[in-house]
Amino acid sequence: MASLGELERAVMDLLWAGHEAATANTLRDLLAQSTRAENGTAGHEGKDLAVTTVLTVLSRLERKGLVERERGTRPHRYQAVSSREDHTAELMHEVLGSAPDREAVLARFIGSVTDTEAETLRKLLGLS
């Protein structure tokens, strides 16, 4: 649990797995638990993680539009904006999609191929 990037990933994994809103405290405890589970022993690294760090991570994720805060409750409860699957679909939509400037954003190994063309290719190679 060194970098903020790794923490962001861990927090998102917890929120995606949990399906419901969680407070920073809950998330801190869950992170500590998973660290202990990884280390096998009742290590103390988990305890080093401060709630403020978790809050920093959450506000970074909030700025990126990945988590949202439930308003009106104290302490704030956080939840993922969309599921892991939805975000993967968003990425793939960008990759496979037909936005005019997509080609400038990323380079695909193979562009979209029509069904007939894919058929021709399969025949060509005897893959069928």
Binding site: G97, F109, R122, L127
Partner: peptide, 26 residues
């Protein structure tokens, strides 16, 4: 060539691939 063909046929013909990610049709 084989790599191109596999990726091309998979990205177009694989059942569900297009449905799952809502790849826009032409």
């Amino acid at each position: 060539i084989k790599a191109i063909a596999i990726v091309a046929s998979g990205s177009s013909g694989a059942p569900g691939a297009r449905m799952a990610f809502g790849e826009p049709e032409l």
